[in-house]
Design a protein around this nucleic acid. Structure first.
Length: 629
RNA sequence: GCGCUCGUAGCUCAACUGGAUAGAGCGUCGGUCUCCGAAGCCGAAGGCUACAGGUUCAAGUCCUGUCGAGCGCACCA
């Protein structure tokens, strides 16, 4: 089933090709389009072809529009879809869908309960989607939320559109942080705590080791000691001054010395543990494996809760064996060259990257993440057979992906990695929520809070429900609110994290959409004696609210594929919001159960199709719908 | 210094990639439940799209410059 826009576009192109005495070029015809009108005052769809063609021909656009209209008026297919086109403004061609067409389309959408008119792509790809990618032994926090939710959503949409999708969780399970983790494991591990909450304990020992080795934290300690002394110098009187400062210095001195010493010991220790791990030390290897297993188990719980599935879990460690041969090859073909002790790839012929070389082997002989990512790219293309690769990774890594793709081109790898970047998470103070320092909200706590807030609201709105029902609904609504808050927003804009806004259930939020679905279910529950129709061939639409809703439903098939044009789920979220809006307006204006005959059948059909679109559309965003709320 | 992403209503964000009088939500103010669920609906107020030029029938969108913000630019990932 072609979308209205596609049908009208085909008709427009026919009319352009029929222009006499001289039709426009094939390229021009192929690029001409009919798109949804910006404003309902100008009809439902519009075409700008007359203006662009007039510009090329240096003729009057309105005169040209008149000529095109003359051709369009002769097309019998058009009269079945649209009222006669109107010429407006500088030369716009405006189309208005007829109520007969919309009624027919509504019937077709009603019959197509699985896809509601959405066609599969004509050029399916095998696409590897790399998202979430948390680090082992670090807490999964709000910073991972965007990649996780965005990536899952894109995977769902790509699958729905007929692509072969492989989701890959590219875990940060290797690298220098494991020196610290193992050092912490050997020196600070609390087995009991590990049994209770493994991830929390891993995080604790990592942070402990990290803080110890962090020079900035050390100097912060120095400052604190000095400030403490300075404050006491003022508050104490001069009489006791010399004595008390001397005392304080006496107390602080050994503490400071001990801290400095601990820092040096921990830094050296971490480096040693890392070296042992990398050279295959059995004990460290075993500790690493346990950390990976424990973390993986915790991560699985979170993903299960979010309804997210990964086909592959190929972390950085998976590529270890491939790195040395890769480096050898890079050297052999002259792509990588020694520089300042490291092995480096230069992009001298690329003006943008000329002064931005890429290190593939560090001075100490270790590989870094560029090395791993080259190996990953090769694996995905050569072993997995990917024809597209999407990496859902934060915007700050744009340069890394440019470099990676430049390397890929030089290696003759046909598929680039598409960097699907997103903005930063900001606190309510508009400052960046940092990953390492500061207390970022743990993802698990965030989800708990979301459910709890949802539960309280349900308690207030619908106390009659059973406790079980309330809990289930709270989960669906709470998680939906969190996901929708991310997805309804342009992915590149920085995201201001706000509990209140995220969990407010008014306006453009998931609960608003879920509520529209629930109301429809309520109508169908009341229809107990007369089940909802699944086919209807005598539909009739008259009320403006009915027509607006039917038109919006027909546009679902336009909204879904558009998401992948530029990887923007917010356009689908926005569509669903407008749909819910149109439904609510229809619901106010047009009683369903009290109407009769063809009107009643048509309104029930509108309800049924709206429910289907809401359910499928939200599912594409990774969001469930409750039966009541 | 170079590069990337931005700057839109008091606040948080849209604007179908160059289309018509820039739209929503929150907040504020005013209507609306003897009527299918008021988490709703209807209405009002709120704008020199950071600024200055340019390109053309048409610029929030493209080009140049200025100001401002955030983030990257050789051994952390």
């Amino acid at each position: 089933m072609l979308t209205p826009a596609a049908q009208l576009t085909a008709i427009l192109r026919r009319a352009l090709a029929a222009l006499a005495p001289e039709p426009p070029s094939a390229e021009f015809i192929a690029s001409a389009e009919v798109t949804a009108a910006a404003d309902a005052r100008f009809g439902d769809y519009q075409a700008n072809a007359a203006m662009t063609l007039a510009k090329a021909r240096r003729t009057n656009p309105r005169a040209l529009a008149t000529e095109i209209k003359a051709r369009l008026d002769l097309d019998p297919e058009l009269t079945a879809i649209s009222a006669p086109v109107e010429i407006a403004g500088a030369g716009f061609l405006n189309f208005r869908l007829t109520s007969a067409f919309l009624a027919t389309r509504l019937g077709a959408l009603l019959a197509d309960s699985e896809r509601v008119g959405v066609e599969k792509t004509g050029s399916p790809q095998r696409v590897v989607i790399d998202f979430s990618s948390p680090n082992i032994a670090k807490p999964m926090h709000v910073g991972h939320l965007r990649s996780t939710i965005l990536g899952d959503c894109l995977a769902r949409i790509a699958r729905f559109l007929g692509h072969e999708v492989i989701t890959d969780n590219h875990l940060g399970d290797w690298g220098t942080q494991f020196g610290k983790v193992i050092y912490g494991w050997k020196n600070f591990l609390d087995e009991q705590a590990l049994a209770v909450d493994a991830l929390a304990e891993l995080v604790r020992i990592y942070k402990l080791a990290n803080d110890l080795t962090d020079e900035q934290k050390q100097s912060a300690f120095e400052e604190m000691a000095e400030r403490y002394l300075a404050e006491h110098r003022v508050s104490e009187g001069s009489a006791f001054y010399s004595e008390s400062e001397a005392k304080l210095r006496k107390y602080f001195s050994p503490v400071r010395k001990a801290a400095q010493k601990a820092s040096i010991v921990a830094s050296e220790g971490s480096r040693e543990e890392l070296a042992k791990l990398q050279t295959g030390d059995a004990e460290n290897r075993a500790i690493w494996q346990r950390c990976v297993d424990l973390s993986r188990a915790e991560l699985e719980k979170i993903y299960a809760r979010l309804g997210i599935h990964f086909d592959l879990w190929l972390g950085e460690s998976f590529y270890n064996d491939r790195l040395a041969p890769l480096i050898e090859r890079l050297q052999k073909i002259g792509l990588a060259e020694p520089s300042e002790g490291a092995l480096v790839i230069f992009f001298r012929d690329d003006p943008k990257l000329a002064d931005k070389p890429s290190i593939v082997r560090k001075r100490d002989g270790a590989f870094n993440y560029t090395t791993t990512d080259i190996a990953t790219l090769e694996y995905r293309v050569h072993e997995l057979g990917a024809t597209a690769i999407w990496a859902v990774v934060g915007a700050p890594q744009a340069l890394h992906f440019e470099q990676l793709n430049a390397i890929g081109r030089r290696l003759g790898i046909a598929v680039p990695t598409t960097h699907i970047a997103f903005g930063s998470i900001l606190g309510e103070d508009r400052k960046l929520m940092r990953t390492r320092s500061g207390d970022s909200v743990a993802l698990r706590d965030l989800l708990d809070e979301a459910e709890e807030r949802a539960r309280r609201i349900i308690e207030e709105k619908n106390p009659a429900l059973s406790a079980d029902e309330k809990a289930g609904i709270a989960r669906v609504i709470g998680l939906g609110a969190v996901k929708y808050a991310e997805l309804s927003q342009g992915r590149l804009t920085d995201y201001v994290f706000s509990w209140d806004r995220m969990l407010s259930f008014q306006g453009n939020t998931a609960p608003y959409l879920q509520n529209a679905f629930v109301r429809i279910q309520s109508i169908f529950r009341k229809l107990a004696e007369a089940p909802a129709p699944t086919v209807a061939n005598d539909l009739h639409l008259a009320d403006p609210a009915e027509l607006a809703l039917a038109k919006k439903l027909a546009q679902f098939a336009e909204a879904v594929p558009a998401v992948l044009d530029d990887f923007r789920p917010n356009t689908l979220a926005n569509y669903l919001y407008e749909l819910a809006n149109d439904f609510h307006a229809f619901y106010e204006a047009c009683p369903v159960l009290k109407s009769e005959g063809a009107t009643r059948a048509s309104r029930l059909a509108l309800c049924r199709v709206t429910a289907n679109v809401l359910q499928i559309g939200l599912a594409l965003l990774g969001i469930d719908v409750p039966a009541r709320m």
